[in-house]
């Protein structure tokens, strides 16, 4: 685990510079969510605009939009693939992302386009930590 104050970045997943994560969980399935830095920046999420199962997603392109306190934040897909499941609990209760953006707070399950999922263009947690530190300095 990498930690910056209250912001934790578990070592068991890969991070996109747009503060989404990908965690392989089995045969051709990857969970996707937002990291604790994004969660802290936005505070309480009021709603999430999500793609539906069956939709294709592309690394770096908009995957979802978080809505909070009158503002919105688009976040990118961490990998190429197809959405196979939406976390309905988080969709109905996005405020629960505050408690746990990593386990119960996964947002989508994606079938990756290729076997090399989650290596290309993504950070391990130690590099993601440096990226978060830079952003915090900027703030």
């Amino acid at each position: 685990v990498s930690r910056i104050g209250p912001i934790v970045l578990p070592a068991d997943r890969y991070y996109h510079p747009g503060h989404t994560w990908a965690k392989p969980v089995g045969a051709g399935e990857v969970l996707v969510g937002l990291d604790a830095f994004a969660r802290r920046i936005v505070g309480d999420v009021r709603a999430i605009d999500l793609p539906s199962p069956g939709e294709r997603v592309e690394q770096g392109r908009r995957l979802w939009t978080l809505r909070f306190d009158g503002r919105a934040l688009d976040q990118p897909a961490p990998l190429d693939g197809e959405v196979i499941e939406v976390n309905e609990e988080i969709l109905r209760h996005p405020e629960r992302l505050r408690e746990d953006p990593y386990e119960r707070g996964w947002i989508l399950k994606v079938r990756p386009r290729d076997e090399q999922c989650c290596v290309a263009n993504l950070f391990a947690s130690d590099l993601a930590k440096k990226w978060v530190e830079l952003a915090i300095q900027d703030l």
């Binding site: 104050g5 747009g18 503060h19 936005v42 770096g60 909070f68 934040l73 976040q75 915090i136 703030l139």
Partner: peptide
């Protein structure tokens, strides 16, 4: 880092921060 800091930034500050640290193609 302040909880929910985005809402305390000006619109211009937020846009600049968002584009740099939350890049979307």
């Amino acid at each position: 880092l302040m909880e929910g800091i985005a809402k305390y930034l000006s619109e211009a500050q937020w846009e600049q921060f968002r584009k740099r640290y939350f890049p979307v193609a």
